[in-house]
Simulated scan of single mutants.
Amino acid sequence: MTSFVSHTTVDCAHAYELFEWWKQLLGYVDVDGDPNLPGHEECMVLDPESGHRILFIEVPEPKSVKNRLHLDLRPRSGSRDDEVERVRSLGGTEVADHRGQHGPGTGWVVMADPEGNEFCILRSQAEVDAGAPVEQ
């Protein structure tokens, strides 16, 4: 017997606000029949292509340490660097820059959402296919 990942859950202080931010970042959509409204303590988004879901749930504790689990995001189009700039324009912040550590055109950038949850921006598939070494 095995299990599968039903959805990814993000603990947060403001579920609706973070849900809206990630929905814009990822191009995810609302789940049919599950209205997400200001003040809701749980809000879920859905990737219309893969079916992946992310649940934002309010908890009383603030984030206090580095994430032990995080999302690695690969741009659907454009480059990693374009996506880093887009994330910044949405209010994301850069935590660490690992570009070029394994040669020109390699690496990733660690970013944080408005509540400090960390995630990585990888190179696009087109950048990977162009021949630079794969991220470590």
Rank of each mutant, 00 (worst) to 15 (best):
M44V: 13
V5G: 04
D72E: 14
R99N: 05
K66D: 13
I57V: 10
E83P: 03
M111N: 04
V59S: 04
G103L: 12
M111R: 03
A112C: 04
N67D: 13
D47Q: 08
P38E: 04
E127L: 04
T93P: 04
T9P: 00
E42G: 01
D47V: 10
T2Q: 05
I121G: 02
F4K: 10
Y16W: 09
H98F: 15
Q24Y: 01
E42P: 00
P104R: 14
D113P: 05
C43I: 00
C12I: 05
S6A: 11
A13Q: 13
A96C: 06
V128R: 05
A96E: 15
V95A: 12
E17Y: 01
I121Q: 00
D34P: 00
V95D: 01
L69M: 15
V10P: 01
R88D: 04
S77D: 08
P38N: 09
K23G: 09
V29Y: 02
H70K: 10
G33P: 06
A126Q: 12
Y16Q: 10
W21I: 06
A126E: 12
V95W: 03
D32R: 04
A112H: 01
Y28A: 03
E127R: 07
Q101N: 10
M1H: 12
V134K: 05
N117Q: 15
G92K: 01
P35D: 11
G91T: 11
T93L: 12
Y16S: 06
C120W: 02
R74S: 11
V65T: 15
C43K: 01
E41I: 06
W108K: 02
S3M: 11
N117D: 07
V84R: 06
F19S: 02
P114Y: 02
G92T: 04
E49I: 11
S50D: 13
L71Q: 13
T9F: 02
M111A: 05
V128Q: 03
E127Q: 14
D30Q: 02
N67H: 06
P48T: 00
W21K: 03
D34V: 10
G91S: 11
H14W: 05
D81H: 12
Q24M: 04
E49N: 13
Q125D: 09
S89H: 08
G33H: 02
S124C: 03
H40T: 06
F19V: 02
N36R: 00
V134M: 15
P60G: 14
Q24N: 11
Q24S: 14
D32L: 09
C120M: 08
Q24D: 04
M1E: 12
A130S: 15
G116K: 08
Q24V: 13
A126W: 07
E85Y: 03
Y16I: 07
R86F: 11
G116R: 05
H70A: 10
K63Y: 08
S89L: 14
L90F: 14
D97F: 09
V110E: 03
V87P: 00
A96R: 15
W108Y: 07
R99C: 15
L73F: 14
P48G: 10
G100P: 07
E115A: 09
L71N: 12
E94K: 10
H40Y: 11
N117R: 08
P133R: 09
S6H: 09
E94R: 05
T106D: 10
E61N: 10
S3A: 09
Q136G: 08
T106H: 02
S77R: 13
I121W: 06
V128S: 00
L122T: 14
F4T: 13
L26W: 08
D97M: 11
E94G: 07
D72N: 15
P48V: 07
V87D: 01
P75R: 12
F119G: 00
K63W: 06
